[in-house]
Design a protein around this nucleic acid. Structure first.
Length: 114
DNA sequence: CGCCTGACGCAAA
DNA sequence: GTTTGCGCCAGGC
């Protein structure tokens, strides 16, 4: 990501991908980072989500770490909100971990790859 | 300014 | 096989 303009839009790019996540599916910070070309900036994606608060358009609950763990649930107003929203979409969560993660996982690289 | 931290992820020890 | 450390980008102090 050498273009400063793209860096500026990094968050927006993250949001754009997150908004594309289908209901009942979830992806990982790293997957989004790789899709955006910054494969090793998964943390920044997490930071972007942190800044996504107050953005109902952005289903932050559908973004978890690469293991399918709800690592960011504490950053929701109510830690259970993330899990509840996932469950409401048919994604079962046990012990802060998504069940059948392989099936639920939505890889933008794979799904949106041109 | 420079140093530290963070919703992560991978390599190395 | 488990634990530690570093990189990535942005923001706070």
């Amino acid at each position: 990501m050498k273009d400063p303009r793209l860096q500026q839009d990094f968050f927006e790019q993250v949001y754009a991908v997150v908004k594309l996540i289908p209901q009942g599916r979830a992806t990982s910070y790293g997957a989004i980072a790789r899709y955006l070309g910054s494969g090793s900036s998964a943390r920044t994606v997490g930071w972007a989500m942190n800044a996504a608060h107050g953005r109902p358009e952005i289903p932050a609950h559908r973004v978890v770490n690469r293991l399918g763990m709800l690592s960011g649930k504490m950053h929701f107003g109510n830690p259970m909100e993330m899990q509840q929203r996932l469950e409401a979409e048919g994604v079962h969560v046990v012990d802060d971990q998504i069940r059948q993660w392989e099936r639920v996982f939505w890889d933008p690289m794979k799904e949106l790859d041109t």
